[in-house]
């Protein structure tokens, strides 16, 4: 989607494999095969109007294209040693952000929307923006208030309630 990184990729993929790419596409193939068997399990080859027909067709395409992709990827030369999986795909910041996100959703059901969201926004902004806790505090408070007004008060969306709240 992003043009800049995309062109990076294209240049890279023209020459070498990206780190971990062969394992990823192999995994995709595995999932595709699994999907094929699951599709077969729905109704077998009963009739063309059976509920399993399109899933079977789609998963066949899935398997076929996964095979092609695997053939393409495995024939590429291995990635240069300066590119590591961790660097290209899972830098620390990404893992931390993802973990923070998971914690946020976990405490969302525990504490309820307002405290959980505030805590999350505060910690995440502090971590990513690194401009002091005061700014992070006000930015989070502000964002939370706006989200709350728009979703809960204007559009009447029921927000997650915590176990402690009710």
């Amino acid at each position: 989607m992003e043009t800049r990184t995309q062109t990076d990729h294209r240049e890279a993929s023209a020459r070498t494999r990206k780190p971990g790419e062969h394992l990823f596409v192999a995994l995709l193939l595995l999932v595709s095969i699994l999907a094929f068997f699951l599709s077969y399990g729905i109704s077998g080859f009963a009739s063309i109007s059976a509920p399993g027909t399109l899933p079977l067709l789609a998963s066949s395409v899935l398997v076929a294209s996964a095979l092609t992709i695997n053939r393409e990827v495995w024939s590429l030369p291995s990635p240069p040693p300066d590119q590591s999986f961790a660097h290209m795909l899972t830098p620390t910041v990404l893992i931390n952000f993802f973990a923070l996100g998971l914690i946020y959703i976990a405490i969302l059901t525990l504490l309820g929307f307002i405290p959980a969201t505030f805590t999350y926004l505060f910690v995440a902004t502090l971590y990513l923006h690194r401009q002091g806790w005061l700014l992070a505090f006000f930015v989070s408070l502000n964002s939370l208030a706006i989200i709350y007004i728009v979703f809960r008060l204007i559009f009447k969306v029921i927000l997650p309630e915590g176990l402690l709240e009710s």
Partner: peptide
């Protein structure tokens, strides 16, 4: 650094 956490919350609330 400010935008991404906020968008994440929007993604969560929007989906919910």
């Amino acid at each position: 650094g400010i935008l991404l956490p906020l968008i994440f919350v929007l993604c969560v609330v929007g989906t919910y």
